[in-house]
C-alpha cells in the first residue's frame, strides 16, 4: 500500500512537471509597424488572467505570449485580440521557450 502511494506521488509529480512546462504562443502578425499603435495588443494580452509575459517585435512581425504555469490560452483568443487591435494573424506556432529567451535570441541576432 505504501509502495502504491509512493508510486502515485511520483507519477503525479512527473505529470505535474509536464503540465507546468513553459508554453508560449508565437503569432506572426501583418500590419504591425508602429509601437504607438501596437500597444493595444500588449495591453489587452496582459489583461488576460492566463498571461505571464508578452513580447512584441515589430521587425519580425511577432507577438509572443507566455502562458502561466498550469493554464491554457487558445489560439483563437490570441487571434481575436490581435484582430481587435487592428492587425491580422498570419500564422501561429507553439514554443516551449519563455518570452525572455525568445526576446534574448532575437535581440542577439541583430
Amino acid at each position: 500500500m505504501k509502495k502504491l502511494l509512493l508510486a502515485s506521488l511520483f507519477s503525479a509529480s512527473l505529470f505535474g512537471n509536464v503540465a507546468i512546462a513553459t508554453q508560449t504562443i508565437k503569432a506572426n502578425v501583418n500590419g504591425m509597424v508602429c509601437a504607438f499603435c501596437a500597444q493595444g495588443i500588449e495591453k489587452k494580452m496582459r489583461t488576460l488572467s492566463q498571461t505571464k509575459d508578452v513580447y512584441v517585435n515589430l521587425k519580425q512581425r511577432l507577438v509572443a505570449v507566455e502562458v502561466k504555469d498550469g493554464q491554457t490560452l487558445s489560439n483563437d483568443t490570441v487571434k481575436a485580440i490581435v484582430k481587435n487591435a487592428g492587425y491580422e494573424v498570419t500564422s501561429i506556432e507553439m514554443s516551449e521557450h519563455p518570452v525572455a529567451q525568445i526576446k534574448a535570441e532575437l535581440e542577439a541576432k541583430k
Binding site: 499603435c37 500597444q39 493595444g40 495588443i41 495591453k43 489587452k44 481587435n84 487591435a85 487592428g86
Partner: peptide
Amino acid sequence: QPTTAGPMGFDES
C-alpha cells in the same frame, strides 16, 4: 471592418 492606428486608440481606450 474593425480598428486602430490614427485618430483613435484601440477598443475601450
